[in-house]
Amino acid sequence: MTVFHFFNCAILTFGPHAVYYSATPLSEYDTLGTSIKAAIVYLGTALVKLVCLATFLKVSETDSFDPYQELLKALIGFVDVAGLYFALTQLTHRNISQNHKFQAVGLGWAFADSVLHRLAPLWVGARGLEFTWDYILQGLEANANLVLSISLAALGSLMWLRKNKPKTLIPIIYICAGIVSTMPSITSLQDRVATAVSFLSEARPGVALTGGGWV
C-alpha cells in the first residue's frame, strides 16, 4: 500500500502522457519545447480563469441549479479556448509541421492540467493508509482529459491553422469545438444530475445517506 499505491496511481495519471510523447513521432522531432510552452500558457490561462471565476461567480450556499451562473461558468470555460488559440497561433514554434504542433500543444496542455489538478491530491491522499478508488478514478480521468485536450487542440488547429478547409465541414468543426470546449460544464452537469438521482433513489427506501460516495 502507501507509496506503492501512490506509484501505481501516478503511473496511471502521468504514464499516458509520457507514452504518447515517446510513441508518436513527437519524440523524433523533438517537440518538447512546444509542449513546455503550451504548459506555461496553460498555467497563465488557469490563472486568468481563476481570477474570472472568483470575480464573476457567486458562491452558492445551496446546491441549487442556477442557469445564469452555469452559463457564466461555461463562458469562462472558453478562456481555455482562448489560451489554446494563443498557444497554437501566437507562439513562435520551431519549424514543426502543423500535424505535430497541435499534438505537442495538446499534450503539454493535458500534462500541465494533470500536474496542477491531480499531483497534490495524489501525493497527500494516495499515500494514506485508507484505500479508496478515488485516485484510480482520478488517473482514468487524466487519461480522458488527455484525449479531450488533444482533440480540442486538433479542432483548434483545423479552425485556425488550415487555410483550405472544405466548406461543408466548417459548421461541423465549429459545433464540435463548441461541444468539446464546454465539456467540463457538461460533465459537471451530468455529475449533478447523477448525484440527484442517487440521492432520490437512496432517500426513497428511507435509508440514511452515507454521503460522499463517488458516482
Binding site: 500500500m1 506503492f4 499505491h5 506509484f7 501505481n8 503511473i11 494514506g128 493508509l129 485508507e130 484505500f131 479508496t132 484510480i136
Partner: peptide, 13 residues
C-alpha cells in the same frame, strides 16, 4: 483504515 492488500497493488501495477 480500509486497505487493499499489496497483492491488489501488484495486480494493479
Amino acid at each position: 483504515y480500509q486497505v487493499a492488500s499489496v497483492t491488489f497493488d501488484l495486480l494493479l501495477l
